[in-house]
Nucleic acid binder design. Structure first.
Length: 372
DNA sequence: AATACCGGCGAGT
DNA sequence: TCATACTCGCCGGTATT
């Protein structure tokens, strides 16, 4: 009953995307280490590395490390280039590429700014040679139109297509034929399976589950006890190369904005910051014709603990004032909670954010002229 | 008992 | 060493019906 019909799925991943976008607009940096940074503005080099090109990666610079650390690694490399994130530009490039990808498949699903899946079951007639040809020409088209290299994976479902993409990059091309899924996965360390991170890996290790092949045969009861009634069984399915989730273009379901404060604040004057975040979110909602029914706040403490509070509102809104009112109230009550709890330490906040969920497409409203 | 909501955690780009 | 800005999904607990 749970079996899904045979499919041909392509996963596409634009290589080291932000850094490659920077290389495209400034070709002279192509043979240098390029590091795209999110400067938090606390000090000169505070912040984290978002993406680096492969020259920088080969020297040890990777996503998530502090900018100061990256600079130390590259201190003897006089031609290393550190650039600030320019999301607007990357989004513009991404939108053009995604239009191309969308038009290549029967069904399209964008997974992130630089990743997408397409179902090509119909277009390929389930002939994997044909599916691979489609993937190959998509790669070529992206290279010609945008000068961007990409990696692709062709397989029988989204999970396996993703595992295929990850098998070889940059500029990779990997096909996993139907029936060869378990053979491909079995020798990999469990941590390489998409969805299994450090925490899950640590929980599996004491059970002697270190390879995906081990997980594929693990006891269902043990997995269910450890990971819950949904996730436990799913993990074993994944390890067997099974993934019935369809390729579907899904509307966005949440939006958030978060900033790092100039300094950790005990009782910070949040009015201004939260106002700005709320305005930004409202603008984004209006521009994308969405409304939201839930407003939340995010607080990251000095100890990097994440705290959140949220509130459903009875109706759909996209008003900056309303979002700001609710976010402000949530911060107020959060502070009161902390004071009553006497958690002095937790008072210090490093980053604060606002989040809206319960997104729905806004009814197309008449323009002002319709009313006068 | 089923469903909805909430806050925390984990994973990924 | 210092530690961004997002998005999505699941879990357990609690409230609502």
């Amino acid at each position: 009953l749970a079996s899904s019909l045979p499919r041909a799925v392509i996963a596409l991943d634009l290589d080291y995307f932000y850094a490659q976008c920077e290389e495209v607009r400034r070709p002279e940096i192509k043979d240098k280490p390029v590091v795209v940074c999110v400067f938090s503005g606390r000090t000169e080099d505070s912040g984290a590395v978002s993406t680096a090109n492969y020259i920088a990666r080969s020297l040890g610079v990777k996503s998530g490390i502090p900018i100061a650390f990256a600079k130390r690694i590259l201190k003897d490399n006089q031609d290393a280039v550190f650039l600030p994130l320019d999301m607007e530009y990357y989004e513009t490039v991404s939108d053009r590429v995604m239009d191309l990808v969308r038009s290549t498949g029967d069904v399209f699903e964008q997974a992130s700014i630089d990743e997408a899946y397409i179902d090509v079951t119909r277009k390929s007639g389930l002939d994997f040679q044909k599916a691979a040809d489609i993937a190959r020409s998509l790669k070529t088209e992206i290279l010609h139109s945008e000068k961007l290299t990409s990696s692709v994976g062709v397989a029988s479902n989204k999970l396996m297509a993703k595992m295929a993409v990850d098998a070889k990059k940059p500029d990779g091309f990997t096909t996993i034929l139907p029936g060869k899924e378990r053979e491909f996965l079995a020798p990999l360390p469990v941590g390489k399976l998409f969805g299994i991170g450090p925490k899950t890996e640590q929980k599996l290790e004491p059970l002697g589950i270190v390879k995906v092949g081990d997980l594929a045969q693990a006891d269902l009861k043990i997995l269910t006890n450890l990971f819950g009634r949904k996730l436990g069984p799913t993990l074993r399915e994944m390890a067997n190369g099974i993934d019935t989730s369809p390729v579907v273009e899904r509307p966005i379901e949440q939006l958030s904005r978060i900033v790092t404060l100039k300094q950790d604040a005990q009782v910070f004057d949040f009015q201004e910051v939260i106002r700005a975040l709320a305005d930004d979110l409202s603008e984004k909602l209006v521009a994308s014709h969405f409304t939201c029914s839930n407003v939340g706040i995010i607080a990251i403490t000095s100890e990097l603990k994440i705290r959140s509070r949220s509130k459903s509102i009875g109706s759909q809104t996209q008003s900056a004032d309303e979002i700001f009112q609710i976010a402000g109230a949530l911060f107020s009550s959060y502070f009161h909670e902390l004071q009553e709890g006497g958690l002095e330490k937790e008072h210090r906040l490093r980053r604060v954010g606002v989040k809206v969920t319960g997104l729905e497409k806004a009814e197309k409203r008449g323009t002002l002229e319709d009313f006068v």
